[in-house]
Write a protein that binds this DNA or RNA. Structure first.
Lengths: 129, 129
DNA sequence: CAGTATCCTGTGAGATACTG
DNA sequence: CAGTATCTCACAGGATACTG
């Protein structure tokens, strides 16, 4: 993958590349690894949303951290920020088309979670004994 | 999702649940958030592997961290550990069926990365100016 | 070979308070 | 309302050395 993005052969052929330090995959796995990214993206799924509403949906996140996350996602082109020149201020965050496209693989993860989390939890219980 | 795993309606209906503190999704997103999980799983894709070989595939990881990661994945039932009573010692790690099933959503992420990482990187460049 | 055992550090993230 | 500004800290993770 780091050497050939358009590689057309099977999964095994590119499996090693993801492990190379300069592989673009690290970008993705690095970003989704950040604690709040996924939640913000999922929270934005219904549509454009104001800061406070977003914060409420995400839950316990502090404004500082939410802002940091949003800036990062903006920088990645996954989220757009639109400020209206009003008083009181009004700002709307939304997923960009690129950001919306991430919903699909995230959905795959969620589907996996729904299907298999019970097994994982059972395994964890067993591990404790 | 936290309230109804078998919910059959659309994505929007369950979008909020993932944000609840007790949602099982957190288990997944929490685990994949750990820095080395994905890499270990991907590294194990080809088949059973010894500690040192695994370490070499994953790259720069230290033995301590690799061990921690493996123990966690073992606890989750995603990876199995098999020790042969020989000298020198020999241990083989492998994906369990459950662990192998995780390869699918991971593949979706990788596919997304392959398709869109250039856009993300371009956006980051723009953000720096 | 397959790990442990220590020690150490950066930083992601929380708490709290304040402002254009 | 939509953030900033500080301060603080746990802890994931790294470096290094050692062992059954």
């Amino acid at each position: 993958m780091s050497t050939s993005l358009l590689d057309e052969d099977g999964a095994h052929a590119t499996a090693m590349d993801v492990l190379s330090p300069d592989c673009p995959s690290r970008v993705v796995f690095g970003r989704i690894g950040e604690r709040w990214t996924m939640f913000v993206i999922l929270a934005l799924e219904p549509g454009p949303m104001r800061f406070t509403a977003l914060k409420a949906r995400v839950g316990v996140v502090t404004p500082k951290v939410l802002t940091e996350t949003l800036r990062a996602l903006e920088g990645d082109g996954l989220v757009s920020r639109r400020a209206f020149d009003e008083s009181p201020p009004r700002v709307e965050y939304a997923l960009t088309p690129l950001g919306r496209s991430l919903l699909e693989p995230i959905a795959a993860m969620r589907a996996w979670a729904e299907a298999h989390v019970p097994e994982v939890l059972a395994s964890r219980d067993r591990a404790l004994s």
